[in-house]
């Protein structure tokens, strides 16, 4: 199988901050590749470099065989992008937005009508072509952006948080379109998302990024299997003490505290719960609830980053401040 994207030691530094730190990565053709990580982990910076919007500090990458440093024009022609924030012209109609894109990307004139019809049917917007985009709902705008991103038949489609801020129903719809696209148009898809369960059900391969580095790579299934066993989640008072005590038990592979709970990874969880409860009552830890589950991608994330993605979010405000400072510095 050939690779749609080959990343070699790609780095982006802003002053002392290593937003992307010597990342190596291969994305196979036809994959749905998910980049997961907390805000400020470097996902968007990585994508920005791959789509040639930002220049790397060191290293390089090829996209569809074109070097992002030496041949950015060719890279741009061969990819489609849906940004995290909206990037439509609100005051134009859906059709005008699509026609403009066709002009910018030099889509053959004879093909335009046909492609626009095809793609708007695919995303269910064929009846709204003449409507001004301002009146669209968030989901409709997103779907229009996805259609637009595909108008020039890119071989790779980048989706940065395609479902952020949308309601669950719309999110499900968008993932459906994405899967359909990948299958019918044979487009390689690279996406970032916060929703672990969605990444789990959609992506064929996943890379977890934290602090500019890839810390885990594989299919969702293999990542979960690698963790092995079960997760026993104990919601209790004195969670710190509980975690320390669990760490001392030899059959506990790892105990991680987050929020008010401790997650313990063990084999045959159903048999370990009584033992854990016995330990807790001996140490005077009041347990509020216990929950047993197979590892999910959330657990994979916790395993590698030591935090849940939600806790990382809480810190993201700081991260944003740091980034804003850097932004000011550069001007």
């Amino acid at each position: 199988m050939t690779n749609a994207i080959e990343v070699k030691k790609l780095s982006k530094h802003y002053k002392e901050l290593k937003a992307v730190d010597e990342i190596d990565l291969l994305v196979e053709e036809g994959a749905i590749f998910g980049l997961l990580g907390p805000n400020g982990a470097g996902k968007t910076t990585l994508i920005s470099m791959l789509v040639t919007m930002r220049r790397p500090s060191f290293g390089t990458a090829t996209v569809n065989g074109f070097d992002i440093r030496e041949n950015p024009g060719k890279v741009r022609e061969s990819i489609g992008i849906v940004f995290q924030d909206q990037s439509l012209d609100d005051e134009l109609t859906a059709l005008e937005n699509l026609e403009m894109h066709a002009s910018l990307y030099n889509v053959p004139k004879k093909e335009r009508k046909k492609r626009i019809r095809e793609l708007t049917e695919l995303v269910g917007l064929e009846k709204n072509l003449k409507t001004i985009v301002k009146t669209f709902s968030g989901g409709m705008k997103r779907r229009l952006e996805i259609a637009r991103g595909l108008l020039h038949h890119p071989k790779v489609l980048f989706l940065d948080e395609p479902t952020l801020g949308l309601d669950p129903q719309t999110r499900a719809g968008i993932w459906q379109y994405i899967k359909k696209l990948n299958k019918e148009k044979e487009v390689t898809i690279v996406l970032t998302t916060h929703y672990m369960d969605e990444a789990d059900s959609v992506c064929s391969k996943i890379a977890i990024i934290d602090q500019g580095k890839i810390i885990a790579l594989g299919s969702p299934k293999s990542l979960k299997n690698k963790l092995g066993g079960d997760v026993v989640s104990i919601e209790c008072e004195k969670a710190d003490l509980c975690q320390q005590e669990l760490e001392k038990i030899p059959w506990v592979k790892k105990a991680i505290k987050h929020d008010d709970s401790v997650d313990a990874r063990v084999e045959k969880g159903e048999k370990k719960i009584p033992k854990i409860l016995a330990m807790a009552s001996k140490k005077g830890i009041k347990v509020n609830s216990v929950n047993l589950r197979k590892p999910s991608l959330d657990d994979v994330f916790i395993h590698y980053t030591g935090k849940t993605i939600r806790e990382q979010e809480a810190n993201s405000l700081d991260a944003m401040r740091v980034r804003r400072k850097i932004w000011r510095h550069r001007r």
Binding site: I81, D85, D89, L104
Partner: peptide
């Protein structure tokens, strides 16, 4: 502010 700038900046133009 409304994001359309990005669409033009990443276009192969």
């Amino acid at each position: 502010q409304f994001g359309f700038l990005k669409e033009t900046l990443v276009a192969p133009v």
